[in-house]
Write a protein that binds this DNA or RNA. Structure first.
Length: 660
RNA sequence: UGGCCUAUGGUGUAACUGGCAACACGUCGGUUUUUGGUACCGAAGAGUCUAGGUUCGAGCCCUAGUAGGCCAACCA
């Protein structure tokens, strides 16, 4: 076994370390803990891929645990959808669990906490408690109920549980430290009163545990070794550990929370709340609209589990904020479908073509290869006749040599058929071409540059084709503090086309995937019925021809993170003295421009730059020159800096210094 | 007036206890091709946010700064 070592991500490093430190590999166990309050999206796929992926790698069990502690937002519909999506991705969970399974245990532990003087009942308004909590920059203060006796706390908590109070009247909170620098440690809530029906426990409870109290203890109950979540839970880790400290038996496995950066995809949003808004406001047809970044949307669009897993794998796992280009997702689906999708011919934007030397009443069934990437895919027959459709874009009356398609007097190959030559065109009153007249030859061995797809008109089947574009026009629609994400909705994200497809597609079944040759990958939508074909365009083929033409679509500039001029100048310093002459000249001009926007106080610290970093000293000198020219008066520090530079070995530095 | 996290080509991730910054996508060029697809070959592109320090040697360790993110829900 030649094990090419795949580099480990930081979580795998942690696990390897734990294993080395004596953790039994059999004790490895993970969990994926969705809240059933919405559909899973591509962002969740990363979390799923991490935990289930680790399970596969270490042959460890992975639980699916629904974090269902808030009956106000959670529903069975979401539980079902989540299970379907995870299964569809091809993952198998060891056990299906619910946080609500542990409500009794959590309650019992809460009693222990109260008895230990580690928790108390507070009876103030949420506003009053928020007030006492302080702010991130200001410590909190103790509230009036903090010193209630254990007996009183026990009694009140019991009565909370029995439903004797209204929602909001009391809460149970941990007694930690109201001055703690971590806000989450300032006596966090453990239980609140919620007189709501729960999708699993019905009306058994009218108090419900909070996330922090529930999550770590649930991990402990399930013997989870590594509890992986996204970065925003980092501050919760301290509390996670505190709660664990209160109940953990030291010879039992203690779960560990570790955090990774969540996935962000360009031109889309990942917030469940915002996705729900798109659904509710009818911007999309539902959670599974093919434009949605949900797993169900991607599935309906034609994405495969393989492609999504590959995507998550390539994206990697780390701790820094990221934004992944959709083109990577598209690459992954093309790569997968290229190997498996049968090729067929379909014309989306038809132009009639008449072959004048082919008998009008003749038809031939020609052999066509289903997939040249897959020998086992075999062949099929496609009908040919004297009248066919080709794409409008595939014909021009005249065009330059790099237009490989059909032009008057030019020859082109018809895929799976003959070579034709365009002889003349027929136009309507507006000058629009309505027909192209061609002649054909049966000699198919000739070399011609272009190959076109086509469909015999009399044999063609009509189909509805839904072409999608990105749902938002902005790269990061929900990142603007002054604008709502709804303002960026792309009004042209869905285009419905009447297309003509080859007859072999007539009985294509829902979910089947094809490559429409030269166009892209398409699948049969669930709206398809016998006799009424509906296709979704999953993704187009890579099109290096379209790129050559001046695109009307303005290439959106990446909003480069703005850096301060002084920082940019410093960066030049790193390599300035090593640049070739011409580039150095450019750099110098750039520096001089940038230097107009810096203050003397920004520059002065650089005077102390060590002798060996001459590049930095030179750029400092150049900038200084600009400042002096703009009226900064020479002081002692400046004079010393220049004097020292004049003695330097570096010619460039001396040159710049003597100029001052 | 705080705490925590992060900083490596355009994007995303690597670089095992410090040792010539690598891979994928994207970009550009070429070969093959009955898909301007695929496959294959090649190229450009970062000297690792800045400064200082430790070291023979720093992307990695230390210090300070800068930038970005997270933290004040009876949400998860």
């Amino acid at each position: 076994m030649s094990e090419e070592k795949k580099p480990l991500n930081f979580i795998e490093h942690i696990i390897e370390e734990d294993l080395k430190d004596g953790l039994d590999a059999n004790d490895l166990r993970f969990r994926f803990p969705p809240e059933p309050n919405g559909y899973l999206h591509i962002g969740h796929t990363k979390a799923i891929g991490i935990s289930f992926g680790l399970g596969e790698k270490y042959k460890a069990p992975v639980n699916l645990r629904f974090d269902d502690t808030n009956p106000a937002k959670e529903e069975q519909e979401y539980v079902d959808a989540i299970k379907e999506d995870i299964s569809w991705l091809g993952y198998k969970w060891a056990e299906e669990r619910y946080s609500s399974d542990y409500f009794q245990q959590l309650y019992d532990w809460a009693i222990v906490l109260i008895k230990d003087g580690k928790a108390y009942v507070d009876s103030q308004s949420s506003e009053a408690m928020a007030e006492q909590k302080g702010t991130p920059t200001q410590p909190g203060v103790n509230g009036p109920h903090r010193s209630r006796s254990v007996e009183e706390n026990l009694e009140l908590f019991e009565r909370m549980k029995n439903g004797e109070f209204n929602e909001g009247a009391h809460i149970l909170r941990a007694k930690i430290d109201m001055q703690h620098p971590n806000m989450l440690m300032r006596d966090p809530l453990i239980y609140r009163i919620l007189k709501k029906h729960h999708h699993r426990t019905g009306n058994d409870w009218c108090i419900y545990p909070m996330y922090d109290w529930t999550h770590g203890e649930s991990d402990y109950i399930e013997h989870i070794s590594h509890s992986l979540c996204s970065l925003e839970f980092k501050p919760h880790r301290e509390l996670y550990d505190w709660f664990l400290d209160q109940v953990v038996d030291t010879d039992k496995l203690r779960p560990k929370q570790r955090e990774f950066a969540r996935l962000n995809l360009s031109y889309t949003i990942m917030s469940k709340r915002k996705l729900l808004k798109l659904v509710e406001e009818g911007v999309v047809s539902g959670w599974d609209d093919p434009r949605m970044p949900t797993i169900s949307g991607l599935r309906r669009r034609g994405y495969t589990p393989t492609s999504i897993k590959k995507f998550v794998e390539t994206v990697g796992v780390a701790k820094r904020e990221n934004s992944i280009d959709v083109s990577l997702l598209e690459f992954c689906i093309r790569e997968d479908l290229n190997k498996s999708a049968p090729r067929v011919m379909a014309v989306l934007n038809p132009l009639k073509l008449v072959i004048t030397n082919y008998d009008a009443d003749k038809e031939e069934w020609l052999e066509a290869e289903n997939n040249q990437e897959d020998e086992s895919a075999g062949f099929r027959k496609v009908p040919f006749s004297n009248e066919i459709y080709i794409e409008k874009e595939d014909f021009k009356e005249e065009a330059s040599d790099n237009f490989f398609r059909l032009k008057l007097g030019g020859e082109v190959r018809l895929k799976n058929a003959y070579i034709i030559k365009a002889e003349s065109v027929v136009k309507d009153a507006n000058g629009e071409i309505t027909e192209v007249h061609c002649t054909y030859t049966e000699d198919t061995t000739k070399k011609v540059k272009g190959t076109l797809h086509w469909v015999s008109i009399q044999h063609s089947v009509t189909a509805e084709v839904r072409e999608y574009d990105r749902l938002f026009n902005d790269e990061a629609p929900d990142s603007h503090q002054d604008k709502d994400f709804m303002e960026f909705i792309n009004p042209e994200s869905l285009k419905i086309i009447e297309a003509f497809v080859e007859p072999s597609l007539a009985d294509a079944e829902i979910g089947q995937q094809f490559q429409f040759q030269r166009l892209g990958y398409f699948n049969v939508d669930k709206a398809s019925k016998s006799g009424v074909l509906v296709f979704n365009k999953t993704v187009g083929l890579k099109d290096s021809w379209a790129k050559q033409k001046p695109k009307t679509e303005t290439n959106q500039q990446k909003p480069q993170q703005k850096r301060l001029p002084i920082e940019l100048i410093k960066q030049y310093g790193k390599k300035y003295d090593r640049l070739p002459d011409d580039k150095r000249e450019e750099a110098k001009k750039d520096i001089q421009e940038l230097a107009k926007h810096i203050a003397y106080d920004d520059l002065e610290p650089l005077f102390n730059t060590s002798v060996k970093k001459s590049g930095t000293r030179i750029i400092t000198m150049i900038s200084l020159g600009v400042l002096l020219a703009n009226g900064v008066v020479k002081n002692e520090a400046i004079n010393a800096f220049i004097a020292k530079a004049l003695e330097d070995k570096n010619k460039l530095l001396v040159e710049e210094a003597s100029a001052l």
